[in-house]
Amino acid sequence: MSKTQPVKSVSRALSILNLLTSNSYTLSLAEISERVDLPKPTTHRMLQSLRNEGFVKQSPEDGSYKVGVKVFEMAHQYAENLDVRKEAQAELRKLNRQFDEIIHLAVLSGSEVVYIDKYDSKRALRIYSSVGKRVPAHCTALGKAILAYLTEYEINRILSEESLTKHTDSTITDRDELDEELESIRDQGFATDQGEHEEEISCIASPIFNHEHDIEAAVSVTIPSMRFNQDKVKEIAPVLKESAGVISRNIGYTENFSQSGGGKE
């Protein structure tokens, strides 16, 4: 046996798996053989080996083939092992270099968001934030970007009228008003915080989704309120959304990340 034969066998098996995973319908032996450009006997042997290991399922009715449950089990396990902080680092650095502003990555914890990564700006702006710090979800761009993509039940469980604490004159404390803003966030795919938590600080944030299409985290660009305006939003938001889309795909999100955000349809 040639020393290259095992590699060729793996390549052939992967070609078959790639074909089956890219099709939502079953394929016959003849169709698979033709599309992967292999003789029918070779294709049949490959399919039987893959079927025996659970990577391919064969229909008992017509003998056609489709991808097996083992592929989905492995894909799920791979996605479960992905670390959003690790997978986000390249995009966080890119945002930090491009805008020279403070970049935060955060996840939801109860009615608060927790910073899990931060890149500082070289500018004079300094805010008291560090990895592990908690801030309210209802009055921060990061928090609202996450809340917007939770179910109504989850939002109701997390928030109550009493929890909408006023931090500045800009803080939203009315639940109906907050619900309207969350709907707007879902439409545009990003959230803003114009001095709602700290008067001198404003943020733009975009959601990050995981392999199950659930909201996983959010990424933000923090700028001084005195420099915050609609021109800044128009400059930063599209780039931020694209970075959030890249991070989402890095942790297994498979749908096209649209300009109005991702999440479940």
Rank of each mutant, 00 (worst) to 15 (best):
E216R: 10
E196A: 10
G54R: 02
A148E: 02
H197I: 13
Q5W: 11
E31F: 09
I102P: 00
K166Q: 09
I172D: 00
H213F: 11
I215T: 03
F209C: 10
L38Y: 13
I103V: 01
K234H: 10
E181A: 06
K232D: 12
L14K: 08
Q5E: 13
E255M: 12
Q98I: 11
I102G: 02
V233S: 15
S49W: 11
V246N: 12
R134M: 12
A137I: 00
L164N: 00
T254L: 11
A218Y: 06
Y65A: 05
K118R: 15
D100H: 00
P6H: 02
E73Y: 02
V10S: 11
L38G: 03
K86I: 15
S248A: 03
V10M: 10
F209G: 02
T171Q: 03
H104V: 12
A141G: 02
L82F: 04
I116V: 06
A141E: 00
S121H: 02
L164H: 08
S111R: 08
K241I: 11
V84E: 08
V131C: 03
A205N: 01
R227M: 07
S184I: 14
I204E: 10
E34N: 14
G189S: 03
G54I: 05
K57Y: 15
S11I: 11
E198R: 13
L50Q: 03
L240I: 06
N250R: 13
T42A: 07
H44E: 14
K86R: 14
D62W: 05
N210L: 15
G261A: 06
K264G: 13
I16R: 03
E216F: 12
K144F: 05
N81E: 15
K118W: 14
G195L: 07
T43N: 01
A237E: 08
V10A: 09
K40P: 09
S163N: 07
I185L: 07
G195T: 07
A13D: 12
S28L: 02
L159D: 02
E91Y: 02
Y149R: 05
I103M: 00
H213Q: 09
P41D: 02
R35G: 09
S260N: 08
N18F: 08
H104S: 06
S129V: 15
T4L: 11
E183V: 08
H44I: 11
R51D: 13
L178G: 03
A237F: 08
E242Q: 10
S28H: 04
S202I: 11
D193Q: 06
I215A: 01
A106V: 04
A244K: 06
H138P: 04
E80T: 13
V69N: 12
G63Y: 04
L147I: 01
C203N: 09
G263H: 05
R175H: 09
E53H: 09
V113E: 14
I32W: 04
Y25S: 09
E265M: 03
K133Q: 13
T254R: 13
E112T: 05
V221D: 08
E196P: 05
V135T: 15
V246W: 14
H44D: 15
A13L: 10
I208N: 06
A191R: 01
I208P: 01
K122M: 11
Y149L: 09
D174T: 04
T171P: 05
S24Q: 11
S28Y: 07
K133S: 14
I155E: 07
T140M: 07
V246Q: 14
E73D: 03
A148K: 01
S129G: 11
Y149S: 11
D176W: 05
R126A: 15
M46N: 10
R186L: 04
T43V: 02
I201C: 08
